[in-house]
Amino acid sequence: MTKIKNFVRNNQYTSILVGLLIAVLALFSALKGSAFWRIDLWKGMTMQFPEYACIALGLMFVFISGHHDMSQVLLGNFGAILAVQYMAANVTEGMANGQVAGIIFIGIGIALAIAVVGGLINFLLVSYLNVPPVMATIAMQMVWKGLSTALTKGYAVKGVPALYTTVGHTYIGGFLAVPVVIFLVLLVIAIFLLKFTTFGEKLYMIGTNKKAAKFSGINVHGMLAATYLLSAIFATIGVLIMVSTMGSAKADYGISYTTRAILILVLAGCIPDGGQGKISNILLSIVTVQIIATGINLFANLNTYYSSLIWGGMLIVVLIMSTQVGNRAPKKAKKVKKAPQNAA
């Protein structure tokens, strides 16, 4: 019991999230019971969450560094559009799977190359031209969307090879969805980078005080370049997963994922002020958000917008609670110096 108490005291934020998750699970169990605890329902969830979870993971790096990236999804869409156009143009009927796979890989390569370009542009704007990150990336978001729209006249680009969608929808061994595998790979990379390398160490320090990091001999420019690149690449991978779900690419697919990624991170206590954010909390947050989205679908009379209601509400409540957590933390007792008193 005292162990739990200690854990709660030391990990107030994590405790709030665990409490929230238990509450959500309890609520759906009470209301839907066996319909909620069905294996296929949970398998379905694993097919859905990776697309935005990848985007959120990418954004996490940026938030920890004290920056912001609103351009992620639309940059990913532009890359995906080029990729799908390439695949559609080169895959012909009756082609061998091996050949198709080669073309798919080149397509993915194109999308990732665009991600690199986009990430570098964000970095240059923010680092060398000193544009505030929110503004720079909102502007780039509009530019990428504009390019996509001009290229596709606003239509969805169809012609994703069947192999691509089939693989994207496969459950390995009957239960492990391919998107989950991709997400897990990114997760492992993220955990490794943040917890076991100097990159993570430096990232948190830069997010806390960029100037002090620079004065300590940290290559701040290089770190930020890597951060924006990671954000763009992770998000593009998320969009590529989405392409397999949709069977096409479009200028404004997944536009709401920008908000959802921010929601997930803020819910997890990872805010764009920088220097904060724990991967375990972010995982908890992703799971909670997906369970709510799926749970809502069990109610025939509730449409999907109910999840907006709950998420928005949750975001506000968590934000308010986070200020209270801070207030309740024990105040640092002022050290009273021992010195002889010599009143005149």
């Binding site: 948190y204 320090m205 806390t208 005080n209 100037k211 002090a212 990091a213 004065f215 220097g275």
Partner: peptide, 9 residues
């Protein structure tokens, strides 16, 4: 404070 330390770390 601004150049030497990351106070919140």
């Amino acid at each position: 404070l601004t150049e030497g330390l990351c106070l919140a770390q």
